[in-house]
Design a protein around this nucleic acid. Structure first.
Lengths: 226, 226
DNA sequence: TTAAGACAGATTGTTGACAATTTGAAGTGA
DNA sequence: TCACTTCAAATTGTCAACAATCTGTCTTAA
């Protein structure tokens, strides 16, 4: 819930009203409290938050550029619809980008990142044993893993594209279509192998394994939706 | 200059003032008329375009989400700096995304797209012969190629990410670092092979060739920068 | 001479009001 | 009954003024 590690923790203060509105609305859209496909009324939301329409509009535009809203001139904004096709498209892009992130992480192979990855995996293993193989592949643990791999790529454009854009859509689908997966142990082993490839500095293998991992996750979702 | 084929041609009218400002400023930043790294003064730009600061700010925010501007609270906006690192990051992301686009285009293989790709390539070949092997790999021709492949992927998220976000940064680097490449004939042959793989429905090969193509282009730039 | 602090100018963030456009319903005619 | 037009209410786009914040300069004291 608290999106641990997802949002940059630096500078809680120093944020504008528009930014706070943006963060709040993003959370409500991701979690479905503002329903997918519903229309956004600027005056209504502005009243609700005791803000002016100007500040609210700034927040809405940032949500649009995140791909969570669609705005049309002189008509207004709507929350995006969730569709199977949209979900598959998202996973295809993730496969490409996270595969590349994984390759780059392996080629960089900074010591701090390796330590952090190992530590995280150990934490997940412990948690998994504790909770009887059901809890690991919950949103938080899985996001931790993918988030850290992407960070380790050291490619700012890649990091921004995934962590500040695509992942919010992923979370939106998970929350609203309920993607708690039964792939717990298998996903854990896959994560483990990916980290091994990164440690070995084998970028090609790391990319391959990550792409398979995401593809498997996508197929798992496809099966569930039918 | 006129970005033929790059911008969606539909609905020239029906655009707001903020959108026109956005398009104008985007062009000036891409072409370097507003220098990279320079500070943006809201009052000054607003006066220049006879617009209010509100409308201008909306345009600036859209430029920020495009990655062409960086804004800091209570400080203002600056045009992004061009750096070798930024360029390399851009090409790494392109390699991943356009590789995937190419794979998807090969798996889709719609008849219209194949015809259009063939026709475009023929046009480029003719143009190349006419102009003695120097003119092909100019921005327009090369963009045509990459643009159409991406469109043929039929993945709207991928299309949006590349065509509406990354390509403007690519163009900015090309304009301002002068990337008219001497890879004319070689690039043409690579384009040709990629299209053959797509026609054959060989997604794996198409992806591989596109990634090599972009990697070669990147290395070419790296060499030039030293 | 240098470093810390105060101040003025300018810039950005925010607001409420006005103008332009869309939407949906009521009304008219065939 | 259906299609088309008219019109009013609501919504969005745009603007200019006000408030909060930053930047650079000047002063002052160690």
């Amino acid at each position: 819930m608290a999106t641990i590690g997802m949002n940059v923790p630096i500078r809680e203060a120093h944020q504008s009203l528009a930014e706070r509105l943006f963060l709040t609305l993003r959370g409500e859209i991701v979690e479905g409290r503002i329903a997918a496909g519903s229309k956004i009324s600027e005056p209504e939301l502005a009243r609700r938050f005791n803000a002016s329409r100007g500040s609210l509009r700034e927040a809405l535009m940032r949500l649009e550029s995140l791909g969570l809203l669609e705005r049309r001139v002189n008509v207004g904004a709507r929350v995006v619809e969730l569709s199977e096709r949209g979900l598959l498209e998202l996973y295809e892009v993730r496969e490409a980008l996270e595969g590349m992130a994984c390759r780059l992480a392996a080629e960089q192979r900074s010591d701090e990142d390796l330590v952090a990855l190992r530590r995280m995996l150990a934490g997940h293993e412990q948690q998994e044993e504790l909770q009887a193989g059901k809890a690991y592949f919950q949103p938080e643990g899985d996001f931790d893993f993918h988030f850290r791999i992407v960070q380790a790529s050291k490619n700012d454009l890649l990091i921004d594209t995934l962590c500040n854009r695509l992942y919010y859509r992923v979370r939106m689908y998970r929350y609203q279509l309920g993607m708690a997966s039964p792939r717990a142990q298998r996903a854990f082993r896959e994560h483990s192998h990916i980290i091994e490839a990164i440690e070995a500095g084998d970028g090609e293998l790391a990319e391959l394994l990550m792409r398979r991992h995401i593809r498997a996750s996508r197929q798992n979702i496809e099966n569930k939706l039918r």
